[in-house]
């Protein structure tokens, strides 16, 4: 997983619960206290899952609640960090169609094929007569986070769209299929 996620996750924890909470999460997740997550580097998915789970415990949040909180934080950061991407899209649909390419762009710093593969191609998007269908396939099973982010994007553009998950890996499906219409 690209380091931007971990970095923003710790930023969220520390900004909402203090630096001690951040340290506690690192301790529980077995992450060195001085480890810095660079936004373009790839990191171990298992480590991320430990961080996320620890965050839920430390901040006493449910899964969906945490995902919604992180999505809001992530999008707010992105609007500052990557404003041009938002300008490049006229609406949420255009943004979401481009989203896999932006995601994969973070993998371009990786020359190691294995590390690159850990980032690349988690998303595949279809444009079906105005409906955006997203195929998500990752051991991290963060389809909830994606749907939260999508809703935030829709809100960002002031569009009117519904995000639904047709099938989910958590329920045994080979991939998660998310429809935005």
């Amino acid at each position: 997983m690209v380091g931007l996620i971990q970095k923003l996750l710790f930023d969220l924890i520390e900004s909402s619960a203090g630096e001690e909470a951040g340290r506690e999460v690192r301790r529980r997740a077995d992450v060195p206290q001085d480890k810095e997550f660079l936004i373009y580097e790839a990191y171990d998915d298992a480590e991320f899952r430990r961080i996320f789970a620890s965050m839920l415990d430390v901040l006493n949040l449910g899964q969906e609640e945490a995902e919604e909180a992180f999505a809001a934080f992530f999008l707010k950061d992105s609007e500052v960090r990557w404003p041009i991407w938002f300008k490049m899209a006229k609406n949420a649909r255009e943004f979401l169609l481009r989203q896999p390419r932006i995601h994969n762009g973070f993998a371009t710093s990786q020359r190691d094929p294995a590390l690159r593969a850990a980032i690349d191609d988690k998303f595949e998007v279809e444009d079906c007569d105005g409906e955006v269908i997203v195929h998500y396939k990752s051991a991290n099973q963060l389809c909830g986070l994606y749907m939260a982010l999508a809703r935030r994007v829709i809100i960002h553009y002031g569009d009117n769209a519904v995000v639904k998950e047709a099938c989910c890996m958590k329920n045994g499906a080979p991939e998660c299929e998310i429809h935005i219409l």
Partner: peptide, 11 residues
């Protein structure tokens, strides 16, 4: 970092 990531994206 952002610049570096985008340069790599272009490359």
């Amino acid at each position: 970092d952002k610049l570096q990531m985008l340069v790599n994206l272009v490359l």
